[in-house]
Simulated scan of single mutants.
Amino acid sequence: MTSTARDHDGSPTHRHGHPSDLEGQAEILELDAEVLADHTASITAWLPLAASPRQIVDLGCGTGAGTFALLAGFPEAHVTAVDSSADHLRRLREKAHEHGVADRVRTLQADLDSTWPGLGEPDLVWASASLHHLADPDRILRQVRGTLRPGGLFAVVELGGFPRFLPDDAPEFRPGLELRCHAASERRHAEHLPHRGADWGAKLTAAGFTLEGERTITVHIGQSGSGSVGRYALSALRRMRGAVADELTTEDLAALDELLDTDGPHSILRRDDLAVRTERSVWAARRG
């Protein structure tokens, strides 16, 4: 289970894949962490914690976007990072060594659809963009509640859909292309991800939690001098193409390929009007 990896069209995934697919997921994870770092930090700062947590679990950690934000926000904490991908966990450990925090991180490979791992008694459990991929998320919510120490907090973060990058009237040679790609993506999600867009507040309450806070953060990040937004858009739209190509018209697919051709005149990397536009919804729930 990955924190913000993108499967097919950019939605988070916890599935195993071929090495090339895992490489693509990891690339998205790294760009996601870089571009959305300030927003992730603002979420950790908002959490209604009575005291700074010492033991944290990151469910669906990916390559560590949430893990490292939690380590930075809570400098006395240790994080158990859980994911089903051995490759993502390896990358996370490498980054932990590079950042000098390896002694504060424990990685644990587990498929939560199969087995609930031993996680101790954490003060905080963090699950970002992962719960809606589970076969039975209600069961996992109950497991989390039973794992948390009394009074512990569960933070659920979900993206409000796949990020958008282009203005509505772009590209000039095929206006509205991205909107149509999103529509095709939503049709696929409706079939394959029934828990996407769930009312997590109601689910948390039903699992026995007390809802302490809920907020939605609007994300709008313009193009930067580093080019990270352009690289993020390129990587994400490449993965979206792999999922929706058979649902696009010939004209739309050709236009998308022009955007993704990094050597061509219409490459998305040449555009100066890109922005990351999405929403993040956060629920903070306490175990009584």
Results as ranks from 00 to 15, higher is better:
2 T>C: 10
3 S>E: 13
4 T>H: 08
8 H>V: 15
11 S>W: 11
12 P>H: 14
13 T>H: 02
16 H>L: 12
18 H>Q: 14
19 P>A: 08
20 S>A: 11
21 D>P: 02
21 D>Q: 12
21 D>S: 10
22 L>H: 02
24 G>Y: 00
28 I>D: 08
28 I>S: 04
34 E>C: 04
36 L>M: 15
41 A>N: 10
41 A>R: 13
42 S>H: 03
43 I>W: 09
49 L>K: 00
50 A>R: 03
51 A>M: 05
52 S>R: 01
54 R>S: 14
56 I>R: 03
56 I>N: 07
56 I>P: 00
59 L>R: 01
60 G>L: 10
60 G>I: 00
63 T>W: 03
65 A>I: 05
65 A>M: 07
66 G>L: 06
66 G>I: 03
70 L>I: 02
70 L>Y: 04
71 L>N: 00
73 G>K: 05
76 E>Q: 03
78 H>P: 03
79 V>T: 06
79 V>E: 15
85 S>G: 06
92 L>D: 13
93 R>P: 04
93 R>W: 04
94 E>G: 00
96 A>P: 05
97 H>C: 11
101 V>R: 00
101 V>M: 06
101 V>N: 03
106 R>H: 08
115 T>G: 01
116 W>I: 07
117 P>R: 03
118 G>V: 04
128 S>C: 08
133 H>N: 08
134 L>C: 09
135 A>Q: 09
136 D>M: 07
140 I>S: 09
144 V>L: 12
144 V>R: 08
150 P>V: 12
151 G>Q: 15
152 G>Q: 08
152 G>W: 11
154 F>K: 02
156 V>Q: 13
157 V>R: 01
159 L>W: 11
163 P>N: 10
165 F>N: 07
165 F>R: 03
165 F>P: 07
169 D>W: 01
169 D>S: 00
169 D>F: 00
173 F>R: 05
175 P>Q: 10
179 L>C: 04
181 C>Q: 05
182 H>D: 13
185 S>I: 07
186 E>I: 06
188 R>F: 12
188 R>T: 09
188 R>H: 13
189 H>R: 11
191 E>W: 05
191 E>S: 08
193 L>K: 00
194 P>D: 12
199 D>W: 12
206 A>L: 05
206 A>Y: 03
208 G>P: 14
209 F>D: 12
211 L>H: 06
212 E>R: 02
217 I>D: 14
218 T>R: 14
218 T>W: 14
220 H>F: 15
220 H>W: 13
225 G>F: 04
227 G>W: 06
229 V>N: 02
230 G>L: 15
230 G>T: 10
230 G>K: 06
230 G>H: 05
230 G>I: 12
233 A>Y: 00
234 L>P: 04
234 L>Y: 05
235 S>F: 01
237 L>M: 10
238 R>S: 12
238 R>I: 06
239 R>S: 15
243 A>G: 08
243 A>R: 01
243 A>S: 09
245 A>G: 00
247 E>V: 01
250 T>L: 14
250 T>R: 08
251 E>D: 13
251 E>H: 01
254 A>D: 14
256 L>D: 10
256 L>I: 07
258 E>F: 01
259 L>T: 05
262 T>G: 08
265 P>Q: 10
266 H>F: 11
273 D>I: 04
275 A>I: 00
276 V>C: 09
277 R>C: 13
278 T>V: 15
286 R>A: 15
287 R>F: 14
288 G>T: 11
288 G>Q: 09
